[in-house]
C-alpha cells in the first residue's frame, strides 16, 4: 500500500482508506448469489446436489475462518459438523422437529464442544494439533456408532422436520424449499463470517496467523482469541451439519468421519484459503467433479477421484492460492493495468 513517493501522512491516509474500503461490498460479490438463484431455476433435477453444495460451502467457510484466517490447521472439523447434525436429528426424532430450533441448538451444541475441545487442543500447534483434532472426531464417531440405541449407529436415523416457521415444508423430492432455506442460511452465515474477518478481530486473527509471537509481544491474548474464533467456527460448522441432515432427513455416522474433514479441507485448498469466496469455488468444483465426472466422460468407470486428484495437484503446484487465486490474478491483470492499483 505504501508507495515510495507518498509522504508519511499520505501513506497513512491510504492505509486507512484501504482498510475502510476493504469491507465494503464490491458489485461483483453479487455474482455467486445470482448464480445460485439461476441454478435453482435452470437445474431443478440437480437440486439436491446443489443444496448439498451450498451446505458444503458454509462448512468450508467455517473451516476457512480457522484455517485461512487464524492459521489453525484442523483435520477434525467434522466433530462440530457431526455434532450439529446429530443434535438436530435427535431433536427431530424426539418430537422437536422445528428446523430453526434445530439450527439454534446445533450451533449452541457445537459451540460448547468448540469451547471445551478448543481450550485444550489449541495449546498445541502443527502436527500435534492436526492429529488431536482428528482424534476428537474419530472418538465422536465411535461413540455415535456404539450408542446405536440412540443414534441408530452405522445405519443412522431417518426423521422428518416440521414446516419452517410453521409455513414452509421441506420438500423431499424436488428440494425447492430446502434449497432456498439453505441459501438463506448460507447468506446470513456468510455475512457473519465476512463481518468477522473484516472487523479488527479478524485483522488480529491474520496477525496471529502470520506471527504468533509478535502478536503476543504487542499484547494480544493469543490463546483466548484462538479459542474465540474456534468457537465461532464450530458454531457455524454445527449449523452446516444441521442443514446437511435436515435437507436429507437422514443422519449416519458419516457426518463424523475424518474423511469428510479431509474433503472439506481439500475443497478449501482447491478454492483458496483465507479469501472467503475460495470456499464457494472450491466446494462447488469438488462436488461437481465428485458427482458428474462419469456423466461428462460418458462412462460407468469411476474416474471422479482421478479428476479431483489431477485438479488438486495442478492447483497445489501452479496456483498456490487456489482456484480463486487464479481468478484474482486474471482480474488484477485487467484492472491493474488500467488503474495502476496495487493490492
Amino acid at each position: 500500500m505504501t508507495s515510495s513517493t507518498g509522504t508519511p501522512t499520505g501513506s497513512l491516509a491510504r492505509s486507512v482508506q484501504f482498510l475502510q474500503r476493504r469491507h465494503r461490498f464490491h458489485w461483483a460479490e453479487i455474482i455467486p448469489w445470482i448464480l445460485a438463484i439461476a441454478v435453482f431455476y435452470l437445474l431443478p433435477g440437480y437440486r439436491l446436489l446443489a443444496t448439498q453444495i451450498l451446505v458444503m460451502i458454509l462448512f468450508a467457510l467455517s473451516l476457512d475462518l480457522i484455517v485461512g484466517y487464524a492459521g489453525i490447521i484442523s483435520l477434525g472439523h467434522t466433530a462440530f459438523f457431526g455434532t450439529g447434525a446429530y443434535i438436530t436429528a435427535l431433536m427431530a426424532s424426539n418430537d422437536i422437529p422445528d428446523p430453526i430450533l434445530g439450527l439454534i441448538a446445533a450451533a449452541a451444541g457445537a459451540a460448547v464442544l468448540g469451547l471445551v475441545s478448543g481450550w485444550v487442543l489449541l495449546r498445541t500447534t502443527g502436527l500435534t494439533l492436526l492429529v488431536l483434532t482428528m482424534a476428537v472426531t474419530i472418538m465422536l464417531q465411535e461413540l455415535a456408532n456404539d450408542f446405536d440405541e440412540i443414534t441408530g449407529g452405522f445405519d443412522g436415523i431417518n426423521f422428518t422436520n416440521s414446516e419452517i416457521l410453521g409455513l414452509i415444508e421441506l420438500d423431499q423430492l424436488w428440494y425447492s424449499s430446502s434449497y432456498i432455506y439453505v441459501l438463506v442460511v448460507l447468506f446470513f452465515g456468510f455475512l457473519t463470517i465476512r463481518t468477522i474477518v473484516y472487523a479488527p478481530f479478524g485483522r488480529m486473527l491474520i496477525g496471529i496467523r502470520e506471527n504468533t509471537q509478535r502478536m503476543s509481544a504487542i499484547g494480544t491474548p493469543v490463546h483466548q482469541r484462538q479459542v474465540s474464533v474456534y468457537i465461532i467456527s464450530a458454531a457455524i460448522a454445527g449449523i452446516a451439519g444441521a442443514l446437511w441432515v435436515q435437507v436429507q432427513g437422514n443422519v449416519t455416522t458419516e457426518v463424523y468421519t475424518f474423511e469428510l474433514s479431509g474433503e472439506v479441507l481439500i475443497m478449501l485448498i482447491l478454492g483458496g484459503t483465507g479469501r472467503l469466496y475460495g470456499a464457494f469455488l472450491g466446494a462447488t468444483v469438488y462436488k461437481i467433479l465428485e458427482s458428474t465426472t462419469e456423466q461428462v466422460l460418458g462412462t460407468d468407470e469411476p474416474y471422479w477421484q482421478f479428476a479431483i486428484g489431477i485438479v488438486l495437484i495442478l492447483t497445489v503446484l501452479f496456483a498456490r492460492r487456489g482456484l480463486f487465486g487464479i481468478f484474482e490474478d486474471i482480474v488484477k491483470k485487467f484492472k491493474g493495468a488500467s488503474k495502476g492499483e496495487v493490492q
Binding site: G45, R47, L48, L49, Q52, G156, L173, Y175, W244, Q248, N250, T252, T253, E254, V255, E290, S291
Partner: peptide, 10 residues
C-alpha cells in the same frame, strides 16, 4: 452413508 446415494436417486 446416505447423502450421495440420495442425491443420485433424486
Amino acid at each position: 452413508g446416505g447423502p450421495i446415494a440420495k442425491a443420485a436417486a433424486q
